[in-house]
Design a protein around this nucleic acid. Structure first.
Length: 353
DNA sequence: CAGGCGTGGAC
DNA sequence: TGTCCAAGCCT
């Protein structure tokens, strides 16, 4: 691949970045650990959402040592509401490995850093270029959008193999002396100017070198196929209160959706009627429903990226009839506030307060 | 490779 | 209201 304007392109881009870059918390440090934390939080997550989480997280875990051995429930609580919770555990696992195997020094080469849990091709390149000033590509959605327009690349960015094309493009274009600024400039340009819809080409510092600008088809790129198939699941949720006013919660499985987060007992509704789900609830959790305090406490939909939960919540008074199942317990409202709860459970909790 | 994995915002 | 996300990674 040839690109006649490489020098001008990279210089204009970096100059623009140094003028217009956003003042973000993780741009006020060169600590590889802190940059690592920011990059993991930013995966598929907006800057405005991340900022408060980033600040709280590093106040709680200012060093890799402090994070490496933190209790998992506390860690999940710090991540509560941010989503993609496996990121938190992978980050802790990776940090622990750095503490124990690399004497608390984040590896400064792609080979070693890529072995860390949760560090993929993008995050590896981001840490290496930003924290260590290494000329490594960091290709994310922004970079693919910007470069698909500049270089008129019409490969489908939804296909994993396409990333290689863009990595090679960055290898060609990257500013050899300011690789971190260059990578961040591509991302800031994608976020502020070269946006998915309505790109602000007239404000773009590199429009002169952009094929899509000259062709007038920037809004047609990148090419991205998509298949959004969301499954719908209906649940009956039992908000079960015992005689002393405590509520029944269970911890979810350690794998899969919302792993290790806490929830009110939920019974999937298939063909059962109310009476059958009630029996199922009582026998699964070894409780007896003494009375129904509110048949229709709350009804709502919670939309995940790949599925929808339709929640029908009932407030009942229960009495324990035998030992509770594993990972299940009664908690006061005060105790519940200390547990890591996914957003749908926070919606229910809010009604109880 | 395809699909699983959260959430809140923009249009 | 529905659609598509936003600085991806894991299996």
């Amino acid at each position: 691949m040839k690109y006649q304007h490489t020098e001008q392109f990279r210089q204009n881009l970096v100059d623009w970045f140094n003028q217009e870059k956003r003042d973000l918390p993780w741009r006020r440090t060169s600590d590889p650990y802190k940059i690592w934390v920011s990059e993991v939080m930013l995966q598929q997550t907006r800057v405005d959402t991340v900022i408060p989480y980033y600040n709280r997280f590093l106040e709680k875990y200012p060093t890799m040592q402090s994070l490496a051995y933190a209790p998992q429930e506390e860690l999940l609580k710090m991540w509560e509401g941010l989503g993609y919770y496996s990121r938190a555990r992978n980050l802790q696992s990776g940090v622990k490995e750095v503490v124990e195997k690399y004497d608390s020094q984040v590896p400064n080469n792609r080979h070693d850093i890529s072995k860390l849990k949760g560090v993929g091709p993008y995050t590896a390149g981001a840490i290496l270029s930003i924290a260590y000033n290494k000329p490594e590509h960091a290709v994310d959605g922004n970079v693919m959008r910007v470069l698909s327009r500049v270089l008129h690349i019409k490969e489908d960015i939804a296909l994993p193999k396409t990333r290689k094309t863009f990595e090679e493009a960055v290898d060609m274009l990257i500013h050899p002396n300011q690789p971190g600024d260059f990578n961040q400039a591509l991302m800031d340009l994608g976020a502020m100017i070269c946006t998915p819809t309505s790109p602000k080409c007239l404000l773009c510092p590199v429009r002169e070198y952009c094929t899509a600008f000259h062709e007038g088809d920037a809004d047609q790129l990148p090419i991205k196929t998509k298949k959004t198939k969301t499954k719908k699941i209906q649940f009956h949720v039992y908000v079960a209160k015992d005689a002393s006013g405590r509520y029944l919660l269970e911890r979810r499985s350690s794998e899969g959706l919302l792993a290790d987060m806490w929830q009110f007992p939920m019974i999937e509704i298939e063909k059962e009627n109310t009476s059958e789900t009630r029996k199922k609830f009582q026998s699964l959790y070894n409780v007896k429903i003494e009375s129904c305090l509110n048949e229709n406490l709350l009804t709502f939909k919670h939309i995940f990226s790949h599925l929808v939960w339709e929640m029908d919540c009932t407030l009942v008074k229960v009495e324990q009839t035998a030992n509770l199942p594993e990972n299940t317990n009664f908690f006061t409202l005060e105790q519940i506030a200390q547990l890591p709860l996914p957003v749908p459970m926070q919606k229910i909790l809010k009604v109880l307060n």
